[in-house]
Design a protein around this nucleic acid. Structure first.
Lengths: 357, 357
DNA sequence: CTGAAAGCGCTTACAG
DNA sequence: CTGAAAGCGCTTACAG
């Protein structure tokens, strides 16, 4: 009766009273700070348990830390991002930090909104996948909050870290593979321009540029062909259908990523075609690529590892590091059944190869 | 020089000073509350823009709302949950609420930790997918925070809402389909007991029970066979391999959900078997099930819709409703190529069927 | 080692 | 319509 109804949540004041100590003392025990006698710690711990006390994060956030790390992700239906979260979450196990994830606003998918939402919530650190946000804006945000960006090839970030795949090398692997198989008519199915045309070079922009350069270097400048589709499997499917039903069907398609590649494979299967007719390569090597019924050749850049590394860098920053770091994840091509030598070709190089064997 | 460095983030005090009004006035404009003259609103709005002011959510949370809704999800790699988030996020577009997602702690996947983490952060409402959490604990939590649970068949929740698929009807659809095709050796591949053995009846427990009952009703009590696997595609694959390589291979497998079914299909493909040898049915009808290369027969219960409905119920609760509601999503069987009549059988019923045609 | 006091940036009654 | 004051539940210097 004294303190009121027990439905009300206990506060630090309640704990202090129950333990016969000051609020400051409870706070210290809570944070494992120095300067608490074993006896006092004991009494406080007991009181906390008895009252089922849990500190309000909002209140802590007013002065100190929220023990919350935020991650912004543009799209949940893409399995690659799920892997990143998984890796990040695993890396956080055993630390006092809680991960919260903010999905990009469907209306404003660039990421500004979601990142701001996280910053407004006073997260102690932030990792984001936002190729379309300007680096100047990030430099402006970074002094207020430790920041690690995924998949950004920014020239020279001053105040935040980056974890990137080597999209240049990955694309090189893809094209070497296709060229070795004897392909010449290689189309690159990428995303819409708003995604490939950002300043620092988004992953998709780099893949596109490297595709063009490599084709030219291989003497296939005439065969450079870029097709674009909105993000999403179904959009990729539609674009691929148009492409595959057109007069000059390519013998190979290098898709922007697995999500796109799955749409392409959908079209390929629906038209009764096989890898002999048109080879398909993806990027990300998501779980489904390895399924025997899909067997998609793809570039692995381990989303799990990217997520884990990003968190590791973030924890370093929170611990005090201020100099910027960049981590590059090496790509690895996983060859599967979705790629094969092109069927019967007028291509002289393919003939040479065949007769040389 | 007067106010200090401009790097410091503006507070409500700064805005009030710049607009020449009180902090209370700024607060009212912020929340669109009554009792502000158009002129004052104008001046405040201008000041907010000029200063780039954004209210700190922690501070708001101390007294009022955080405009944050939380959602707890046990597993990000399962596409069904991604769809739920997508649906929830879409439903929130245009409202002042921001969605944040907390992944379950990998070490304590039951969900208590993640839900508490969200509650500690003062979210204005919470939706969770936690079959293993006790309903008593939820009743205890609910008075403090509006709560909607997904996939819980609790008897009679008093203080929270539920959105569930009709797992009973869904299972009935699956078995009717398989029985009509002529299958008798139907195995149910479900998850480990800790997931199916919770009190109120988890979705998987209901699918399991309904499977057993329907088999008995069909006179196939002798054919009831339940196999269990840890969650995850790879675990399902291993269990399926053992099952398919055993002496008495079933002709059909009803998998706990698509994630499991994909593992089964992996084994089926690897052993060079087809749907004629062993039919496979999943649950959730995730995107990949509809891919022509997968073509998995599955029960659709629309994760998008479940997520959207859950948010709609939550907003009602936040608006004041206190009476509990339950929403049931009707399942729909989508028949694809992964199911077919069993090949050549000694089964008399199969013979009857064949000769009757 | 311990505690009293100030303060974080908002919102909420309550007067005017 | 407007504002002064109290208060939300913590943490942080600062004395003792």
């Amino acid at each position: 009766m004294a303190t009121g109804d027990s439905t009300r949540h206990a506060t630090i004041e309640d704990v202090a009273r129950a333990a016969g100590v000051s609020r400051a003392a409870v706070s210290k025990v809570l944070r494992g700070a120095y300067g608490v006698s074993p006896d006092m710690r004991q009494r406080v711990t007991t009181a906390i348990k008895e009252l089922g006390y849990r500190p309000r994060v909002s209140a802590r956030g007013m002065r100190g830390a929220t023990y919350t790390l935020g991650i912004e992700i543009p799209d949940f239906t893409n399995h690659f991002f799920a892997q990143i979260i998984d890796g990040a979450n695993a890396e956080l196990a055993g630390t006092p930090y809680q991960l919260i994830i903010a999905p990009a606003d469907p209306v404003h998918p660039e990421g500004y909104r979601a990142i701001e939402a996280l910053a407004d919530r006073q997260v102690d650190g932030l990792v984001a996948v936002s190729p379309m946000v300007s680096s100047a804006w990030l430099e402006d945000l970074a002094p207020r909050i430790p920041l690690v960006m995924l998949g950004r090839h920014d020239e020279n970030p001053q105040r935040y870290d980056t974890v990137v795949g080597d999209d240049d090398a990955g694309t090189q692997l893809v094209l070497s593979h296709l060229l070795e198989l004897g392909h010449r008519d290689i189309v690159h199915l990428t995303l819409t321009e708003d995604i490939t045309k950002c300043q620092p070079g988004t992953p998709h922009e780099i893949r596109l540029r490297r595709y063009q350069e490599t084709m030219v270097e291989a003497g296939l400048a005439d065969h450079v062909r870029v097709v674009r589709a909105e993000p999403g499997r179904h959009e990729a499917y539609k674009a691929a259908m148009a492409l595959l039903e057109s007069a000059d069907r390519p013998t190979a398609i290098y898709a922007a990523h697995d999500e796109t590649a799955l749409g392409v494979l959908h079209a390929v299967a629906e038209l009764g075609l096989t890898a002999d007719d048109v080879s398909v390569v993806g990027y990300d090597d998501t779980d489904i690529a390895g399924h025997p019924q899909m067997s998609l050749t793809s570039v692995n850049q381990s989303g799990m590892e990217m997520g884990a590394r990003a968190i590791a860098l973030l924890l370093e920053r929170i611990a005090g590091r201020t100099s910027p770091r960049r981590l590059t994840i090496a790509p690895r091509l996983v060859v599967r059944d979705s790629t094969a030598p092109p069927r019967q070709q007028e291509s002289s190089s393919a003939h040479r190869q065949a007769s040389t064997d």
